[in-house]
Simulated scan of single mutants.
Amino acid sequence: MFTARFSPRVYETDAFGHINNTVVPCWFEAAREPIFRIFTPEMDLKALNIIIARIEVDYVAQIHYGHEVTVHTGIARIGNSSFVVWHEAFQRGQLVAKGSVVHVYFDFSQQKSGPLPEPLKAALKEHLRAE
């Protein structure tokens, strides 16, 4: 499991004084950087050969400005050409959001998905969440 911390910023609030719902997927993406480094340790974005097929976010509780948010991230499932990443966000010890992202291993030169290479599968398995 990976952990990332975010300090909500004033401009991330909405008209109701809560953190805007569009911010959480951005935090989740930033929290996936360690997973991206499995595919390209140097974070060469041109070498990052995965794409997003699906994003789900469940907003469990209100998120407020002024209190740090901690996001836990790991691997939920590994398939032949895709893998699912899970996220859970906490503020002041309370679960405030959770979600998942389906990434597909993608060959940009062929413009199609392909099988995940075994070394990448093995690296992802190290972060697989126990059921």
Rank of each mutant, 00 (worst) to 15 (best):
T3V: 13
S7C: 13
R9K: 13
R9H: 09
V10P: 12
V10L: 15
Y11R: 11
A15P: 00
F16T: 09
I19M: 01
N21S: 10
T22E: 07
P25G: 04
C26Q: 15
C26R: 15
W27M: 03
W27T: 02
E29P: 02
E29T: 03
A30G: 04
A30V: 12
A30Y: 11
A30F: 11
R32L: 05
I35S: 00
R37M: 10
R37F: 03
F39K: 02
K46D: 15
N49K: 08
N49D: 13
I51K: 06
I52W: 08
I52M: 12
R54T: 10
I55C: 14
I55P: 08
E56P: 06
Y59N: 04
V60W: 01
Q62N: 10
I63D: 04
I63P: 00
G66I: 07
H67G: 09
H67F: 12
E68C: 06
T70I: 13
V71E: 01
H72Y: 15
H72L: 14
H72G: 10
G74A: 06
G74C: 05
I75T: 01
N80H: 11
N80T: 14
S81G: 13
F83N: 04
V84I: 15
H87M: 03
H87D: 08
R92G: 09
R92M: 11
L95K: 09
G99Q: 03
S100V: 04
H103K: 05
V104W: 03
D107L: 04
F108H: 11
F108E: 06
S109D: 15
S109Y: 09
S109Q: 14
Q111S: 12
K112C: 14
S113F: 06
L116W: 05
E118N: 09
P119I: 08
L120P: 00
L120S: 02
K121Y: 05
L124I: 04
E126G: 11
A130L: 14
E131A: 14
